[in-house]
């Protein structure tokens, strides 16, 4: 219990931040997503391709704290250099929490992020144990730089980045799609608990960055363009790697 006492001042600090009035925004974006992916359980070759990616987001911005949630989905037909095909499905819920510290320049916010990401890989030439998958939940620091410009400060440029350092990983096994504990008789809960492994710093990697440029309309809504990049490398029974760049057009609606 003593170990958790340090949380008390943290929550005391957090309360005024949570209690403040916030500006809420709904975010919608879509655009081309370029991706490459490699799963050493099946192939040392890189599969690459592009398709449309979609994101639904929500932002709550207060004087001291900003919360952002991005729900992203994309389904991509990827090919290797020999034209073998793989269907990749990516889904993620990414959250950012940024704090405005007095000791930092006004444009710079620091905070933390949480990524909950699923990757499914369906190889055309693999008849069994398909699709292979990874799911990870991870946490790490995040930073955001945001500046306004233009005669009426109607332009906004934001750049934010995250690096995940700790979390959990749930992924396909050495041979099969389901993790090994699901292959013998025991409760689903036990099998699930035994399948979870630690997202370890330096062994697993998840980092990303997002640049956005917005123009504010007279009604307070924003239109903009952006680029979101991520890189993930996970090692469990085998190593899998993927990276994607999403070029998007975005609408922000004030709620």
């Amino acid at each position: 219990m003593k170990n958790f006492l340090f949380l008390i001042p943290f929550f005391l600090f957090l309360h005024p931040v949570l209690a403040q009035n916030k500006k809420h925004t709904l975010l919608l974006n879509t655009g081309t997503q370029n991706t490459w992916e490699r799963d050493f359980a099946y192939s040392p070759l890189v599969y690459a391709g592009s398709n449309a990616g979609f994101t639904l987001g929500f932002s709550g911005e207060g004087h001291k704290k900003t919360d952002e949630v991005y729900i992203h989905y994309s389904r991509l037909p990827l090919q290797n250099q020999f034209n073998a095909e793989m269907s990749a499905t990516h889904a993620s819920i990414m959250t950012y929490t940024f704090y405005k510290w007095d000791w930092l320049p006004r444009q710079l916010n620091l905070g933390w992020s949480n990524n909950n990401a699923l990757s499914l890989r369906n190889y055309q030439d693999s008849q069994n144990f398909n699709p292979r998958f990874d799911f990870h939940t991870s946490f790490g620091p995040a930073a955001r730089f945001q500046t306004y410009f233009g005669k009426q400060q109607q332009w906004r440029f934001a750049s934010q980045a995250h690096l995940q350092v700790i979390g959990f990983l749930f992924s396909a096994s050495y041979i099969t799609s389901p993790p090994d504990p699901f292959l013998h008789e025991q409760s689903t809960f036990n099998a699930f608990m035994q399948s979870i492994s630690l997202f370890q710093p330096f062994r697993q990697h998840d980092l990303g960055m997002m640049n956005q440029l917005f123009y504010q309309l007279t009604n307070g809504n924003e239109i903009g363009i952006g680029y979101r990049w991520h890189y993930t490398s996970l090692e469990n029974a085998h190593r899998s790697q993927r990276s994607g760049g999403h070029y998007f057009f975005q609408l922000n609606f004030q709620l």
Binding site: N34, T35, W36, R38, P44, L45, V46, A48, Q81, F145, T147, F149, F157, S159, M209, N211, L213, Y227, W229, Y231, Q241, S243, G244, G245, Y247
Partner: peptide, 24 residues
Amino acid sequence: NRFLLIFLATWTMSCEEIIAPKSP
């Protein structure tokens, strides 16, 4: 400052291609 920002934003585009692994 703004020039540097635009340069940074442009430079960080296509990151996925820059870090793509070479063929084995």
